[in-house]
Amino acid sequence: MRRIQVNVNGVTYEHEVEPRLLLVHYLREGLNLTGTMVGCNTSNCGACTVLLNGESVKSCTLFAVQADGHEITTVQGLQTNGDWHPMQTAFHENHALQCGYCTPGMILASVSYLKENPNPNEEDIREALEGNYCRCTGYENIVKAVQQAAGQTS
């Protein structure tokens, strides 16, 4: 076991964890933050995407011990004082979800990407989200939502 301290969505947690515990399981089962999904388990699908120090990462391919001392943001930590993040609003307004399973990962990957490129075109967005699968195939509205959010934050 190993003691870790992480800041998740603005709250500092300290836990003893087994080194092989994956970050996604720590978030879901340790902290009960079930907004982060388990999808493919192989770092392909992006359902488990969270922000590590502000950058998108796949929490199924990271051990919780690697996050020791770092800041994690999950979809449940994106809002500020009850107000949705512009990306959440954009997903809502564009109906950028069907079953919703990929949505947390899509939103976090998009938030991370707009920090790198605040003015993406449609192709940029599609490429930036290549590691996030929507098995409902609802990409059309997802891309529209990211375009709307980009327009608002740039």
């Binding site: 992006g46 990957a109 991370s112 930036a128 590691g131």
Partner: peptide, 9 residues
């Protein structure tokens, strides 16, 4: 390589 999230790590 991979995708942006993979490239971050």
């Amino acid at each position: 390589l991979g995708d942006p999230s993979v490239q971050h790590r």
